[in-house]
Nucleic acid binder design. Structure first.
Lengths: 207, 207
DNA sequence: TACCGCTAATTAAACGTTTGTTTTAATCAA
DNA sequence: TTGATTAAAACAAACGTTTAATTAGCGGTA
């Protein structure tokens, strides 16, 4: 019985297809053909196309809460060190899993599956809370400017990286990066990380 | 003959539906019902659902090239004044037309209609070129730091505002803005504009 | 080892809906 | 009367899902 192989094959191919095309643009026949399985297998293993989609997103969206929390609450790090660590972690996390974050990105921009959107937001909100506290702490201990807009700093970091990962074709053209693959190369990651570290320290640090 | 009224009604309702849902999630029957016209009217006036979609995006995406160009090449403004003007213009433009920019946003993140995506990118790229020259000019005349990453500054501005407009439901939760409508209110616009002006001047200006 | 029975896995075919589009005919204004 | 506009109905194709039949694999029994 090849259950594990076929189920995994469906998930692998579904990830590719759903990353590049909207939910409704991918048919179960497309999925079955790509994974080399019978059409009935999708309903058999996942119940429905929609449940496959949800299972895919949820399973691939690994828990980053614990990591963010441990960074944000680490007493050994200064506020600026925490910020740097968050930028590094966040950049790598999204660039290591571009497919699922493209799916999430698209899911957050539509009202097609409101329950799923709500679930995704609640997961992301946990991280936002930790980072928010971390930034406010930096204000309180005198590291950061008291009048800095921390809400926009956070969404700026989230949005910008998520946007690059979510629209790689567009981003390549805008950033003069020749291929989409190079977007996820170490060199470009370093460029992103350096940019945000410099950007935010110039904006946040007291003069 | 009510041609203009009905055709306009279709466009108006289509804009709302396509802003909130993906292309394939909106049926011609949904469109016809929302616009209070017969199903056949969509093919009759636009040729097809896809052509309606393209006509909608293209017609609503007014030319911002001339404005950006006139700002970027204005000899009466300093480099920092040009930057401020671009931030203001860009914020207002996207916030005044959230529906079409949600559509554009979603279109740039998928490969479903490659020709349309290419067209959109080419239009956006023109603006990018002008802003890029403007920023490099600021480097050349000594206003901006020579080692600033201008490519990322640009995509940061584009991506962040486009992201907020493109995923308003998510953005509200992240920014603690109670309703989506408030996201486009003058107060929030001012907040966005202030943030980017401060952010970029801290990052770009020589100390 | 050989066989059985049971369950899970797999397939091909068909299911009823819904899709986008077209046809046909009626209606309207000029 | 002419030609554009509207409506109802019908179109074939594609959709997600299910059914029914078949195959494969495993544990226990002889």
């Amino acid at each position: 019985m090849e259950q594990i192989d076929k189920k995994a094959a469906i998930l692998i191919e579904a990830e590719k297809l759903f990353a590049d095309q909207d939910f409704d643009a991918v048919s179960v026949r497309d999925l079955a053909k790509a994974a080399n399985v019978n059409i009935a297998m999708i309903s058999y293993y996942f119940g429905s196309k929609e449940k496959l989609f949800e299972e895919l997103i949820i399973s691939r969206m690994a828990n980053s809460q614990t990591t963010i929390q441990s960074i944000a609450t680490d007493p050994a790090r200064t506020s600026i060190e925490k910020l740097v660590a968050v930028v590094d972690f966040y950049t790598d996390r999204l660039m290591n899993n571009p497919n699922v974050h493209r799916m999430i990105n698209r899911e957050l921009s539509s009202s097609n599956r409101p329950e799923l959107r709500e679930l995704l937001i609640s997961k992301i909100e946990t991280n936002k809370t930790y980072i928010g506290k971390m930034l406010e702490e930096g204000k309180a201990n005198g590291t950061f400017r008291p009048d800095a807009d921390m809400g926009l700093v956070m969404i700026n970091l989230f949005a910008c990286i998520q946007y690059i990962v979510g629209s790689p074709y567009y981003s390549c053209k805008m950033l003069d990066v020749p291929t989409e693959a190079q977007l996820f190369d170490p060199e470009f990651r370093t460029r992103i990380k350096t940019y945000f570290k410099e950007l935010f320290s110039h904006y946040l640090l007291k003069k």
